[in-house]
């Protein structure tokens, strides 16, 4: 099976979120970047498991500059066979999806894996855009995946529960918790990742939006402490002061 996994990088979850250049840019000063957790823990690992079970290859694709290379190497260390980086600094999801679709088109991938969203932009839209551009089936927030020949059986999160669906390949899916267990790269993986192929391609595409400005949410006022012996007072405040119950 020919598998493609979309990998993006995101600021480490403990990063201080701040902005520079008159709030127009994310302040990456001192920020450590990680593989977007959904891409790594669920999408990439499930793709590698499928390859281990059914044979084939796992390629990762990333849109971004050379600063993405360490996270790409980490994906190779976890077990991807090779990697592609489209050397472009995208302004929005549409542009990312177009660049990936252009690369993947005609190459015969059976399944294209994405994480369910990135933890920085939280858009959750590249996967479905890709499916439309490549004219194939799509499953959002997949929690389980099995492949039988030309068909996949997938469980996905749905309003109020979980749905089991069957979809014909080729397929794009976005992976959520449950798909796989995080894998920590071992020494051999890390060593071999250094020499695995990482192709850099240049390409450009139009986007449909750009970020004008960032803002931080207003600070919370002080927390009102209620005595543990007088818990009923909290319920009164929630009804009469906060008016939420």
């Amino acid at each position: 099976m020919k598998l493609l996994v979309c990998i993006s990088q995101a600021p480490d979850t403990t990063s201080r979120i701040a902005f520079t250049n008159d709030d127009r840019e994310f302040d990456s000063n001192g920020v450590q970047y990680i593989v977007n957790p959904y891409d790594e823990w669920y999408a990439l690992v499930r793709a590698i498991e499928l390859k281990e079970q059914q044979g084939g290859s796992v390629t990762t694709i990333t849109v971004g500059g050379a600063q993405c290379d360490p996270t790409i190497r980490k994906s190779l260390a976890i077990g991807a066979d090779d990697a592609v980086r489209i050397d472009s600094e995208p302004t929005d999801a549409m542009q990312v999806a177009r660049l990936i679709a252009e690369y993947a088109d005609g190459k015969g991938y059976d399944i294209i894996f994405c994480g369910k969203e990135t933890i920085d932009h939280n858009g959750a839209v590249v996967p479905a855009m890709l499916a439309e551009m490549l004219d194939c089936g799509f499953v959002a927030n997949a929690t389980q995946l099995d492949v039988n020949g030309a068909e996949a059986t997938v469980a996905r999160e749905a309003a109020g529960g979980e749905e089991k669906v069957t979809v014909t390949l080729p397929l794009v899916l976005s992976a959520a918790k449950g798909m796989a267990e995080q894998r920590i790269p071992n020494m051999r993986g890390i060593m071999s990742a250094r020499t695995k192929p990482l192709a850099v391609e240049s390409a450009s595409a139009e986007g449909g939006s750009r970020i004008e400005r960032f803002a931080l949410p207003p600070e919370k006022g002080a927390c009102k402490i209620i005595d543990a012996e007088n818990a009923a007072e909290l319920i009164r405040l929630l009804r009469e002061e906060a008016k939420v119950i």
Partner: peptide, 15 residues
Amino acid sequence: NVFSGKAMADVVVTT
């Protein structure tokens, strides 16, 4: 919202 609710962004649609 961006950064999982830690910040907000004003986005301009260019199409």
